[in-house]
Write a protein that binds this DNA or RNA. Structure first.
Lengths: 337, 337
DNA sequence: TTGTAAGCGTTATCAG
DNA sequence: CTGATAACGCTTACAA
C-alpha cells in the first residue's frame, strides 16, 4: 500500500506557529486575517506543499464543488464539444466536473445519479438518457440541482434546456421547397430520443400541412453508418428522394457518402441534404453541409449560471424550461441560398 | 440557499434500531453483519433514500476513488475516444473520473494537478501538456499515482504510456515507396508535442537513411484547418509531393480535402496520404484513409490496471514505461496494398 | 456479531 | 484578529 501522506492544516499551523483555524481562514475566500499571519501561513503552506482538502471542506460546508456530467456516446463530435464547453464554464465558475459514462447497460442513468449523490455533487447535468422520476425526486430532495439537456421531460424541479427542433424542421422544409425539391425524406435512427423525434415530427408535420408526403426511414443508432444504411433504403425507393433531412450531422455525413459513392449522385444538384448540430465535420469541404447550429456555448453558460444561481435563490416548485434557438448554417448541400 | 438535506447513516441507524457502525458495516464490502441486521438496515436505507457519503468515507480511508483526467482539446475525435475508454475502464474498476479541461492559459496542467490534490484524487491521468517537475514530485510524495499518455517524459515515478511513433513512421515510408512515390512530405503542426515530433523525426530519419529527402511543413495546431494550409504550401512547391504523411488524421483530412478540392488531385493516383490515430472519420468513405490505430482500449486498460495495482505494490523508484504498438490500418489512400 | 468511542481534515461559532 | 471547541459523516479498533 502506498502511504498516502497529504499535508494537513494542522502541520501547517504548527510550522507557522498559529492555530489551525488561522490556517483555515487564510484559505477561506472571505475571512479576516492579518497580513502578517497570512504571510507566515502561506509560507509554511508553500514549504510543506499544503493544499486544502476539498473532501473535508465539502463535509463541513455542504458544498462539494462537484458537478456531475452524465453522458453516453461521449466520443461523438457533438457530445464531446458540449462536454468541452461545460467543463470550461464549470471551471470558470469554480466548480469541477465529474464525468459519468453511461454507455453500458440499461438503467445506468439512475446508477450515475446515485454516484452523484454519493459524492455529494452540488448538481448533475444530464446529456443523455432519462432518469427515473423517483431518483430525480431523490436528487432534488437532497438539495441537488438538476439540468436536463435536450431531453423533453416534464418533471418539475430540474432546469430543462431544449432547442426549437420542431420550428427548425419547418425552416429547413422551406429551404428544400425553395430549392425545387419534390420528393422529401427524413433520415432518422431508431433511438427515439425526444429531440430527434421532435425534428422528425416537425418536418413531417410542416410538410403535411402543405399536402406533401415525407418518406421516413429509421435505422440503428444516430451515427455515420446508420446514415449510410438509411440512405441506401431511401435512394432505392421507386420515388427516389431529392431532399433528405437528417436527424443529425453524423447521419447526414453517412447519407452524403452513400449518395455519392454508392449511387453516384451529385450534391446538391440531384440531392439536397441537411443535418443538425453543426459538428466540425459539417464544415469540412467534403461535406459542406447545411445544418442547424446547436448553441453549445450559450447552452453551457445557461446551465452553469442556473447552478450558480441555485445556491442562492431558486423557486423549487417552478417549472423551469429554456428554449434555445437553433441557427441555420447555410452551406452548399442545398441548392440556391 | 437550498437546504442540502442528505440522509446520514445516523438517521438510518435510528430507523433500523441499530448503531451507526452497523450501518457502516452493511455498506462496507468486506464486513461481518448478520443477515437480519443487514436486511433491516437495507430496508431503512431504502426507505430514507440513504447513500454513503464518499467524501466522508474518503476522509477516513484515504481513498477517494477519484481519478483526474487532465485534458486539452477534448472536443477532438481522438481525445474524446480516449476519454470514453478511460471513463469506462475506471468505472469498471470502481473508480470515478474527474475531468479537468486545460484549454485555457499556460501552466494550467499544474493548476489541474493542484485541483487533483485538493480533491485527494487517488491518481491523475495526463492526456495533454506536461506538468512541472516540482508538482509531479508533490503528487508522488502525497501518494498520488500519475500516468502520462503520449508525453515522452523522463521523470521517474509516473507510468508513461507511449506508442512506437518512430517505427510506425518507418513502416509508412516503406508503404509509400512500394506505391512508387518519389516526392515525400510530412505535414505537421507547430504544437511540437513529443509524439508528433517523434513521427516527424522517424519519417525524416528513415527516409534520409535511404538517401531520400522529405519536405516538411508545419502550421498551426494539429487540426483540419492546419492540414489544409500545410497542403496548400506543399502542393505549390516546385517539386510537388506525391506522398504526404500527416502528424494525425485530422490534418490528413484537411490535406486530402485541399488536394482534391483546391488542386483537383486524385487520391491515391496522384497523391498518397497517410495519417495517425485512426479516428472514426478516417474510415468514412470520403477519406478512406490509411492510418495507424491508437490502441485506445489497451491504453485505457493498462492505465487503469496500473492505478489498481498501485494500491498494493509498486516500486516507486522504478521508471515504468509502456510502449504500445500502433497497428497500420490499410485503406485506400495509398496505392497498392 | 454488535456497540462504543476515537479520529479523519475541515469550517463555524463564539469567546477573548 | 485570533484561538479553543464543536460539529460534519464516516470507518475502525477495541471491548462486550
Amino acid at each position: 500500500m502506498v502511504t498516502k501522506d497529504f499535508v494537513s492544516a494542522q502541520e501547517v499551523a504548527e510550522k507557522a506557529g498559529v492555530s489551525r483555524s488561522a490556517v483555515s481562514r487564510v484559505f477561506t475566500p472571505g475571512a479576516s486575517v492579518s497580513a502578517a499571519t497570512r504571510r507566515r501561513v502561506m509560507d509554511a503552506a508553500e514549504a510543506l506543499g499544503y493544499h486544502v482538502n476539498h473532501l473535508a471542506r465539502g463535509l463541513m460546508t455542504n458544498e462539494s464543488g462537484i458537478v456531475c456530467l452524465i453522458v453516453s456516446e461521449l466520443g461523438t463530435p457533438y457530445r464531446s464539444s458540449l462536454i468541452q464547453a461545460l467543463t470550461q464554464q464549470l471551471q470558470l465558475a469554480g466548480k469541477i466536473a465529474m464525468l459519468i459514462n453511461t454507455d453500458r447497460s440499461d438503467g445506468s442513468v439512475d446508477r450515475a445519479l446515485r454516484q452523484a449523490i454519493r459524492y455529494r455533487a452540488d448538481a448533475s447535468i444530464i446529456l443523455s438518457g432519462l432518469p427515473d422520476k423517483s431518483i430525480t425526486q431523490l436528487c432534488l430532495k437532497s438539495g441537488q440541482r438538476l439540468v436536463l439537456i435536450n431531453r423533453d421531460d416534464d418533471q418539475p424541479g430540474p432546469l430543462r434546456i431544449n432547442l426549437d427542433d420542431q420550428e427548425a424542421a419547418g425552416r429547413i422544409l422551406t429551404a428544400f421547397l425553395r430549392a425545387g425539391c419534390r420528393q422529401l425524406a427524413f433520415a432518422n435512427s431508431e433511438v427515439g430520443t425526444p429531440s430527434l423525434m421532435a425534428r422528425e415530427r416537425g418536418f413531417v408535420a410542416a410538410a403535411s400541412a402543405l399536402g406533401i408526403e415525407v418518406a421516413v426511414e429509421r435505422h440503428g443508432s444516430t451515427g455515420y453508418e446508420a446514415g449510410k444504411v438509411v440512405a441506401q433504403r431511401l435512394l432505392t425507393r421507386k420515388e427516389r428522394p431529392d431532399a433528405i433531412f437528417c436527424a443529425n450531422d453524423l447521419m447526414a455525413c453517412g447519407v452524403m457518402d452513400a449518395a455519392r459513392h454508392q449511387f453516384n449522385m451529385s450534391i446538391p444538384d440531384q440531392l439536397c441534404v441537411a443535418g443538425f448540430d453543426d459538428i466540425e465535420q459539417a464544415s469540412w469541404s467534403s461535406y459542406d453541409l447545411t445544418t442547424f447550429a446547436q448553441p453549445v456555448e450559450t447552452l453551457a453558460r445557461e446551465a452553469v449560471a442556473f447552478l450558480a444561481a441555485a445556491a442562492s435563490t431558486i423557486d423549487m416548485g417552478e417549472v423551469e424550461t429554456l428554449k434555445l434557438h437553433a441557427k441555420l448554417v447555410w452551406r452548399g448541400s442545398i441548392r440556391g441560398g
